[in-house]
Design a protein around this nucleic acid. Structure first.
Lengths: 231, 231
DNA sequence: GGTATATATGACTACCTGGTCACACGATGA
DNA sequence: TCATCGTGTGACCAGGTAGTCATATATACC
C-alpha cells in the first residue's frame, strides 16, 4: 500500500510547470464541469470558456478529455482516503467496531460538506456508463470501503461484537447500503425519501445517523428475539 | 388512484394507428437506447437506424425526444405497479409486515429478470441530471415505495411488530436502502461489493435476500440488547 | 541585441446531435 | 382520372462536440 506510483494518469509536463494557483483553478473548473454534467456530457469547450483560456492550452496540459477526467478522479480518491483514513487510523481495535463505523460515516458527511463537487462527480461515475476505465475506477473506491470494513467486521465478529449467524459479507453490505443511501440523500435532496436530511442542521443529521446505526445494531423488528450470544 | 388519465405524455395519433407489432418494435428500440445511453446521450438517429425507418417517421409518432422518453418511462411505471401491486394486494394486513417486505423485494428481483432494460432505464433516471420532468418522474416511483411502505410500517409499529423507539421514517429508510442496493448489485455486477449476486442462481439470491431481511429485523450487533417489547 | 525554446491561441476539421420540411408513395373515394 | 389524406422519407439546418495545428507570444539563455 506504500507505492503511490500506480496513478491513473499524469498530466503533461506543461501542466506541472504551471503556477500552483493556475493549476488549482483549472482543476476546480474541471471537477465542477464533470460534477455537473457527468463525463460524457461534460464539455471542454465550456471549461476553457469559463477559465478564459484557449482550447489549445488545455490540450497542452492533458492528452485528451479522458486524461482530464482521470486526473480529477485521482484527486478525489486522494481526498477520500485522506479524510476517511485519518480518523480511523487512530484506534481501530476490534472492540470499538461501531465507533469506527460512526467515524467513517461522519467523515463521509464532512467530505460532502467540504467537497460537494467531488462527491457529485463520484455519484456520476457510479451511475453513468462509458466512463473511461470504469471498473478500475469504481473498484478503487468501492473496494476501499469493502476492504476496509471487511476485516474490521470479521474481527468484531470474532470478539463477539456481532451476531455470529450473520455473515460478514452481509454485515458489510448493510452498513455500506445504509451509509451510501444516507449520504446520497444528504447530497441530493431529490433522492431523499423521508429522512429530510437536506433541511436538517448538522446536529440533526448526526442524530439521524446515530438512530440508523442503532437500528442496524439492534434491528428494527421485535418478533425475532433469538439473539444468541457469541463468545 | 383510479383515474389513469394523468399520463406523462401521449404519442401522436399516427403512432396509435400503427400495427401493434410495429409499435412494440419501436418501444423496444427506444427503451433499449435509453437504457444503454441514458436520456441525454441517447440518439434518435441511432434508434431509427436500428429500426430501419426514417428519422421523419419517428417525428410523426412523437413530438420530440422528450415525448419518446416520457412514453417509455410511463410504460415502466405501469410494469412496476403491475408486478409490485399484485402480490401485495392479496393480503397486506399489518401483522405480516415482513412477509410483504419479502414479497415486494422478490417482485423486484423478478422485475429485473423480466425487464432488465426497463430497470436500467430507471437507474439512469435516478442518477442522471437534466432528465425531462425529473422530479415528477422520480416521485412517481420513489414515493410509490415510500407511500407504500410508510403506512404499512406505521401499522406494524402500532401492532407491536416493530421496535417502538425506531421512527417509521427510519424503518422505511433502512428497508428501502437495503432493497435498492441489493437490486442494484443484482442488476449491475460492478456495484456488487461482496454479495456476489451476479454469480448466484435464483435460490441463492433469495437466500441472501432472506438473510438480509433477518438482519434488518434482528440487527447485526449483540451489545445493544435493550429490546423493549411493544404492546 | 539575437536566438532557441516553451507556452498560448483560436480558427479549423470531422463528426455528432435534435429537429424540419418539401416531397414521394399508396390507398381511398368520386 | 383526379384529388385528398395519412404516412414514409432523407437531405438539410443550426448547433454542439473532441481534437489539431500553424501561428503568435513570452521567456530564457548567450
Amino acid at each position: 500500500m506504500k507505492n503511490e506510483k500506480n496513478k491513473l494518469t499524469t498530466p503533461k509536463q506543461t501542466f506541472r510547470n504551471l503556477a500552483a494557483e493556475k493549476r488549482l483553478r483549472i482543476e476546480k473548473a474541471l471537477v465542477e464541469e464533470f460534477a455537473r454534467e457527468g463525463y460524457r456530457r461534460a464539455s471542454l469547450n465550456n471549461v476553457v470558456k469559463r477559465l478564459g483560456i484557449a482550447k489549445g492550452s488545455l490540450y497542452q496540459y492533458f492528452d485528451n478529455k479522458e486524461a482530464t477526467f482521470l486526473f480529477v478522479f485521482e484527486r478525489f480518491t486522494r481526498l477520500v482516503k485522506g479524510m476517511v483514513g485519518k480518523p480511523t487510523a487512530v484506534d481501530c481495535r476490534p472492540d470499538n467496531f461501531w465507533l469506527t463505523v460512526r467515524r467513517v460515516w461522519a467523515a463521509g458527511i464532512l467530505f460532502i460538506d467540504k467537497y460537494p463537487a467531488y462527491y457529485q462527480l463520484y455519484l456520476n461515475v457510479l451511475f453513468e456508463q462509458d466512463i473511461p476505465r470504469r471498473e478500475e475506477i469504481i473498484s478503487r473506491v468501492r473496494l476501499f470501503s469493502m476492504e476496509f470494513f471487511g476485516p474490521l467486521a470479521a474481527a468484531a465478529l470474532e470478539s463477539g461484537g456481532l451476531r455470529p449467524e450473520v455473515p460478514v459479507a452481509v454485515v458489510v453490505f448493510m452498513i455500506d447500503a445504509a451509509m451510501d443511501r444516507f449520504l446520497q440523500s444528504y447530497a441530493r435532496s431529490y433522492l431523499d425519501d423521508g429522512l429530510e436530511l437536506a433541511a436538517a442542521d448538522r446536529a440533526m443529521v448526526e442524530d439521524k445517523m446515530d438512530t440508523i446505526i442503532e437500528a442496524l445494531k439492534n434491528g428494527i423488528g421485535t418478533d425475532g428475539k433469538n439473539t444468541k450470544m457469541g463468545a
